[in-house]
């Protein structure tokens, strides 16, 4: 028996909004410790990893490890039926071929349930090594979304250059060039408005705008985002999911032809 109840159901709705453009289908691995999802996008350029800790749920039970393969378009359609303030429960029997989503209004006066067929997905699992990144940039998530959107007007790629002076995002194309520089904030009233740069060595890498823009669909999950970079390895874009976990996007850098 698997059962996970989340009073803040809107978080699960936001997680789906954050992955459904990038992934058509994916497996949710349910274990005693929580729920994890790892999947590559269709073109295998990026990797999404979602981690939801068991302690983050208001009720969590997982008697046996369970892999629930889901069509994310269908899951998203079902979660659209939940109101933002609904309590969401996911439930499945051991070895079941369906999962049930239960939505309760805060007053408990309306209860809906939706059953969805599970899929058998044969997906590659990639091992992500523990890495000390040369640069870790924390910035407001809305600012990062704005930068990716604005620079997408100029070209297909964004160059992210991090040095001790700050971080520079650049794009170049037919209409011209754009550069956005962010310096580390000296003092802020609110922590989520800060730009914080931890740098061991300067790094400059180039990434496809298309993917960065898809990652920013996670913006409603968290006021802050962190970007981790090291020379010649994938960028990690990470958003926390309330107090219950995090979503990480890994994106291969573009390399010289």
């Amino acid at each position: 028996m698997f059962e996970a109840r989340l009073v803040q159901g809107s978080l699960l709705k936001k997680v789906l909004d954050a992955i459904k453009e990038l992934l058509n289908e994916a497996s949710w691995d349910c274990a005693d410790s929580g729920i994890q999802l790892q999947a590559m996008d269709n073109s295998h350029v990026s990797l999404v990893s979602v981690n939801l800790r068991a302690e983050g749920f208001d009720k969590y039970r997982c008697d046996r490890n369970l892999i629930m393969g889901m069509d994310l378009t269908s899951m998203s359609k079902i979660l659209k039926c939940a109101a933002n303030d609904d309590i969401i429960t996911m439930k499945a029997q051991d070895n079941a071929d369906t999962v049930t989503f239960i939505f309760e209004s805060p007053s408990q006066e309306k209860v809906s349930d939706y059953e969805m067929k599970l899929m058998n997905l044969d997906q590659d699992h990639l091992g992500i090594p523990e890495t000390d990144y040369a640069c870790v940039i924390k910035l407001p998530s809305g600012e990062f979304a704005r930068i990716c959107r604005d620079l997408s007007n100029f070209g297909e790629s964004i160059v992210i250059a991090c040095s001790k002076e700050g971080v520079k995002f650049s794009a170049a194309g037919d209409i011209g060039t754009g550069n956005i520089k962010l310096a580390q904030t000296s003092s802020v009233d609110k922590e989520e408005e800060a730009v914080i740069i931890e740098m061991q060595e300067p790094v400059t890498l180039t990434f496809a705008c298309r993917y960065l823009n898809m990652f920013t669909k996670a913006t409603p999950l968290s006021p802050q985002v962190s970007l981790s970079m090291s020379p010649d390895v994938p960028l990690v874009v990470e958003y926390s999911i309330g107090d219950i976990g995090q979503i990480q996007y890994f994106l291969a850098p573009k390399i010289d032809d």
């Binding site: 990026s46 699992h125 091992g127 992500i128 180039t206 291969a252």
Partner: peptide, 14 residues
Amino acid sequence: GKMQPTISKFFASV
């Protein structure tokens, strides 16, 4: 020019 490698170039299958 720059080319776009796949993510599996960096992370091995487990």
